[in-house]
Design a protein around this nucleic acid. Sequence first.
DNA 1: AAAAAAC
Length: 488
Amino acid sequence: MPAEQETAQEALTFSDLGLSAKVLSAVVDAGYTQPTPIQAGAIPHAIAGKDVLGIAQTGTGKTASFVLPMLTRLERGRARARMPRTLILEPTRELAAQVEENFVKYGKNHRLNIALLIGGVSFDEQERKLERGADVLIATPGRLLDHFERGKLLLTGVDIFVIDEADRMLDMGFIPDIERICKLIPFTRQTLFFSATMPPEITKLTEQFLQAPVRVEVARPATTNTSITQRFVKCGSKPWAKRARLRELIDAEGDTLKNAIIFCNRKSEVATLFRSLVRHEYDAGALHGDMDQRARMAMLENFRKGKLKLLVASDVAARGLDIPDVSHVFNFDVPIHSEDYVHRIGRTGRAGRSGEAFTLVTKADRKYVDAIGKLIGQEPEWLDGDLSTLTHEDDAEEKPRGRTGRRGPKKEASDAGEDKGQGSDARKGRKEAIKAENTERKARHDDASAQGERRPRKQDHRREREEDNSIIGFGDDVPAFMKIGIKG
DNA sequence: AAAAAAC
């Protein structure tokens, strides 16, 4: 980007973009004065009613670049029953909820009906909101079509249509759904289309559904010159070895570790690692797509609020989640697709802060690490020697005796008295999560063995199997945050 | 080798 353009953007403030007074005041109250490049580029065109093709990663201020102009444009007119005025499609439930939060935050001076249509929660409240007339409809594709097929929804009144994270929608096989939804919305609508990358399938979609779009492209947040320190850590391939290595890393970071997201490649691994960490008395929660939606929301909320220190997650948390203050990211598994690595570590080092990223690497991961090195354009920095320095002991078949082994049920943590207020909430949250995990496992009992979640068999007893019984001790108490349900 | 998303 030429230097003069950069200075021009630097001088720009939100008041230069043509936003309404109500929106502007909410933006100021939120503490923002200068728009990011994607906001500066997209907002004036979006307000002018033009189609926008925004090529931007998450973390570039993309969400506000469509929320703010939409709010401005929504000030004229009213919603009719079952005929939402705008529609925003998001690939995951958490992202949809996050966009809703943005509309609440920046729309605080407006009186708008916002409806969030996502799976995993009851239809009733969603239907009521549609019935009342939604100014803003935020949805994941499946639940949106479900409502449509039930006749609860007409898309013929949609004036502004937003497709967010289009390339991720592609990855997730949503394109047929998107095409179908597009055809239900009047041709005269305004379309705002966002994607981090432009593979051919996405280009085709934009040619099909956008009219003379203004293309706004911002550089992807660089992976090499950010404030994220990236380290790779050699590790034995046995699951217990990886878990032990992870605990060592966490312990070694001490107080510099404020909170962390720990990524696993599989949901089953998320569940196992989560239970293991809790059993070792770490303040941990879990987040993956097979969990009960309430537990997902509660976990994320607690992590955001700092009530939970470690969040073990699948790639559902890799992209887009806006948690400004994550000090560490651990890759318990090396991501198979190197772009996912960039997304994962991008959860730390946000909002001008510094971040630490550690990736556990086993022998089998060599080629994925090579691919990551290529993508980030730098040689992986190893914490204590690369894979060639793995000792035979590191990859031993048996768990060393007496190190982490523990016989019998562990007694309930004796920290009840020393808890400082908020800790107790966090502990309840953890218990609820375990409960959610257990219900889920019960439900999937039949195929559980395929996922390695089977109860320990007699001959397995030497392996580190997580003994759930030792840590389940629920009362009837339900923490307040669990009762809140889905806000709308 | 996976994850995500509708019931």
